[in-house]
């Protein structure tokens, strides 16, 4: 068992401005300590993939970033503002800059695809012109290649299509940071690769910074600029995909064994 964080490549971070800064973050549920001491930085324009076993607190970590869950202690700054000190209005404003893709997509099942995309737009932007709104919806759907699904209900869509619509709904607010909670879980390898490429394309097109929670090594390989391995409530290892994969440390390489 590793006692200290293995930092394989220190020079990856700190070259660009940090958009998310987490220091000594702790969170427990009913006395069960999930996040014990999390320290990490997400730099501008960077894609960070977080690996870790199921139930280790990866989703809890990104939910803390958008203020869905509040940490017990520690500092969590997004765009240099402490989340815990924000009032509801400030938090809502921040949330329009931070997109969140849920593991189960969380599409509003009583609304069509168009209404799903229109919903956050009408409530957050001051745009009232229907033509402009329609244009933005079509643009977001074009980005994910699903313009034809505009009038469909979520129940009529496949798993991969739901992921894409979830992404389009997030993109419509033009966020600076996107948090992906297991974006390729439950998808076939081909669709997983398509979603991973889409994440990369979006980063290139909109210059977003992303945190991607994933078990999918292919997704991690395609999308990551940097990877973190979460273990027992702390980040145990950090580095680029190839560096971690080729690590001589047995514990790290065990995450990359496919057989």
């Amino acid at each position: 068992m590793l006692k200290q964080k293995i930092n394989i490549n220190n020079d990856i971070v700190n070259t660009q401005e940090a958009v998310v800064q987490i220091e000594h973050l702790k969170k427990s549920f009913n006395g069960n300590s999930v996040l014990k001491d999390i320290n990490m930085i997400l730099s501008e324009g960077e894609n960070v993939v977080i690996l870790g076993k199921s139930g280790i607190g990866k989703s809890v970590l990104i939910k803390c970033i958008v203020g869905l869950i509040y940490p017990d202690s520690g500092s969590l700054k997004v765009f240099n503002k402490e989340i815990a000190e924000m009032n509801p209005r400030e938090l809502n404003t921040l949330r329009t800059k931070v997109g969140f893709i849920f593991q189960g997509n969380a599409l509003y099942d009583s609304m069509t695809v168009k209404e799903n995309l229109e919903f956050p737009l009408r409530r957050n932007k001051t745009i009232t012109d229907s033509h402009i709104i329609e244009g933005l919806i079509v643009e977001a759907l074009e980005n994910v290649g699903l313009v034809d699904a505009i009038d469909k209900m979520p129940s009529e869509l496949s798993g991969g299509m739901k992921k894409r619509i979830g992404l389009a709904r997030t993109l419509i607010l033009k966020p600076d940071i996107i948090l992906y909670d297991e974006p390729t879980t439950g998808l076939d390898p081909l669709t997983s690769r398509e979603i991973s490429s889409l994440i990369l394309n979006i980063q290139g097109k909109y210059k977003t910074s992303s945190i991607i929670i994933s078990h999918d090594l292919n997704c991690a390989k395609i999308t990551s600029n940097r990877m973190l391995i979460l273990h027992e409530g702390v980040i145990r290892a950090e580095g680029k995909f190839d560096e971690l994969k080729n690590s001589t440390d047995e514990w790290i390489s065990s995450y990359f064994k496919t057989d």
Binding site: V66, N92, A106, N124
Partner: peptide, 12 residues
């Protein structure tokens, strides 16, 4: 199904 959370995180 996290639809309420999705509304929350989209600033709605």
């Amino acid at each position: 199904t996290e639809q309420i959370d999705a509304m929350d995180v989209s600033g709605t």
